[in-house]
């Protein structure tokens, strides 16, 4: 299985990266960990003339937490390195869980968060978590930087908001409010090395009483071409104390807006059923992180 021929470019810094991208435009593809790009290039279809390797750029590999700005992750930061930051597990549990489930150890060692987002696969694990955690991406280009929420960045199946000459610089996750918790739950058929069939990420913020829900966000994964922010469903939770009925209403509302595909892996109908289970489970786990064991 040979890769098609291309020219390999390894910029020394982001300045050079920007100029290479503007020189080569559509003929170039960025290579980070390569776990998506090289696999795709081995199948017919994707044949860039230039491959621009960003994996050596320290400027894009940092992972920094600041109590004010939040967590800033360079687009080329490795999935494993992100998981190993204690603050990620502590404050952004949904993201941690979504990374933990990606591929296997080798894939997490090689793959980057930026790659997972830019690849824009409907089945990618981190985007739903990032959406639920209200993450924003910074895009760098000749005309300066742009910032937008992850759900706007991912435009469709394998489509992003990146324009010619632009690249993804970093991902910023705001500091979660006090009394908040988050979780990412996914469903898969094989125990390991498996992409999700359906996925859900939930973030909840509770009032001081640790019971009433102050705010919530829900993101649905693999049930449409892009992650779906289920804001209307999440709103149902606000001001309420959780109950089985409430959660069923919410999960039903999520199922109603989902648009899963029907393929040989599972039917759309079944995916919707699973989606509801995951909404409830993810909510439970996020809620328990703050409220303790009792609903």
């Amino acid at each position: 299985m040979y890769l098609p021929s291309f020219q390999y470019l390894a910029p020394k810094d982001t300045g050079e990266l920007a100029s290479l991208l503007s020189d080569h435009g559509d003929k170039a593809r960025i290579l980070s960990g390569g776990t998506d790009l090289l696999v795709q290039m081995k199948s017919p279809g994707l044949r860039p003339d230039f491959v621009i390797d960003i994996s050596g750029l320290d400027e894009l590999s940092g992972i920094n937490f600041d109590a004010k700005t939040g967590l800033v992750i360079g687009s080329a930061a490795k999935l494993d390195d992100i998981m190993e930051m204690p603050v990620v597990k502590e404050k952004y549990f949904a993201l941690w869980q979504s990374i933990e489930t990606i591929g296997a150890r080798q894939i997490r060692t090689m793959g980057s968060l930026g790659g997972n987002i830019c690849n824009a696969s409907p089945a990618a694990d981190t985007p739903p978590a990032l959406v639920a955690l209200s993450a924003e991406v910074s895009i760098a280009g000749a005309k300066g930087d742009r910032v937008m929420p992850v759900e706007e960045f991912i435009r469709g199946n394998r489509q992003t908001a990146l324009k010619k000459g632009e690249y993804l610089k970093s991902i910023t996750l705001p500091v979660p409010e006090k009394n908040s918790g988050s979780a990412y739950h996914h469903f898969r058929v094989r125990g390991g090395m498996e992409i999700a069939m359906v996925a859900v990420a939930v973030q909840v913020v509770l009032e001081k009483n640790n019971k009433t829900i102050k705010d919530a966000s829900i993101a649905l994964g693999v049930v449409g071409p892009t992650p779906i922010r289920a804001d209307d469903a999440a709103k149902i939770l606000v001001g309420q104390k959780p109950s089985e009925d409430l959660l069923q209403t919410v999960s039903q509302a999520c199922a109603d807006i989902s648009k899963p595909i029907d393929d040989f892996r599972a039917s759309a109908e079944y995916r919707k059923e699973i989606l509801q289970v995951l909404v409830e489970e993810a909510f439970d786990e996020a809620y328990i992180q703050v409220a303790g064991d009792s609903k």
């Binding site: 296997a104 058929v189 094989r190 125990g191 390991g192 090395m193 498996e194 992409i195 040989f264 892996r265």
Partner: peptide
């Protein structure tokens, strides 16, 4: 898995799933 046209839909070890350590 073969579709109506007789095409194999899962000719790779991602979609043709043999058990991993986590399935045992």
């Amino acid at each position: 898995v073969v579709d109506r046209k007789g095409r194999v839909l899962n000719p790779n070890l991602h979609d043709y799933k043999i058990p991993t350590t986590m399935d045992m």
